[in-house]
């Protein structure tokens, strides 16, 4: 059913989405925690920057990331000094771009779940001699679990579904940056509608099942997630 190239694209997409989701959980959790708790004036600006990918055309984000990753960009200079070369048109570059692009989809559900906890569970834990780190891992994380699950699903699915940023940053290198969405585009360009149908249809089914599973889960844990 799938051609060799299709399978390579699917494998690459899953690898990208998994890597990005794991990175986003690591990066997004402290950002979400800070946004959920802070009273600082920076909360607004930081929150807005995190949410930018929700409304920006992916080409805009991709364009600036491309410049930043280029030899004269600040990311490019940093990576060249580290001896990695430039990240544009590499898998690593794609990972970096996807982290930015999917950030709000991970941060916001976690932040909402953490805000929904309120102050009380943390106060209770403090009166039970739990220090700040202890409180975070034994109270906040388990109680915000539905938010983490929603965040993982949305972060993964959104990365699988990206196209514009990939095209700007990654180009179209088989096995390196050619993900499913780009592969479908190629099929259509080449008028291979039958192959495009197979891949596009698979994406439809995949995305539907992801969201179906998520909403079924959220129904049970209605108190967390995107609202």
């Amino acid at each position: 059913m799938f051609s060799e190239a299709d399978l390579a694209a699917i494998w690459l997409t899953l690898k990208l989405a998994t890597t990005v989701t794991i990175l986003l959980l690591i990066i997004g959790t402290p950002i979400a925690w800070w946004l959920a708790r802070t009273g600082s004036w920076l909360k607004g600006p930081v929150g807005a920057v995190v949410a930018l990918p929700l409304i920006l055309p992916p080409t805009v984000l991709g364009f600036y990331l491309l410049l930043a990753m280029g030899p004269d960009g600040f990311i490019g200079q940093l990576t060249r000094q580290l001896g990695i070369g430039t990240l544009a048109f590499t898998f690593q570059g794609l990972v970096l771009a996807s982290v930015f692009y999917s950030l709000p989809f991970v941060v916001q559900p976690i932040q909402n779940a953490m805000q929904a906890l309120g102050e009380r569970p943390l106060e209770v834990a403090a009166t039970l001699r739990a220090g700040p780190v202890d409180r975070f891992f034994t109270v906040v994380v388990p109680m915000a679990r539905p938010g983490f699950i929603t965040a993982s699903v949305l972060g993964f699915a959104h990365t699988v579904g990206e196209f514009g940023v990939v095209l700007m940053i990654g180009g179209n290198i088989p096995g390196e940056t050619r993900v499913v969405s780009v592969q479908i585009y190629d099929h259509v360009e080449a008028l291979e509608y039958a192959q495009a149908h197979v891949l596009a249809g698979s994406m439809m089914v995949f995305s539907f099942l992801m969201l179906l599973g998520l909403y079924g889960f959220q129904k049970k844990h209605f108190f967390a997630g995107i609202r």
Binding site: P121, A125, A126, T127, V139, P142
Partner: peptide, 19 residues
Amino acid sequence: PTHQRPLGYVFQEPSLFPH
């Protein structure tokens, strides 16, 4: 800080950890 004070606290509403 609270977590260094040897006290017990019972809140107005029963505040058990739901998880």
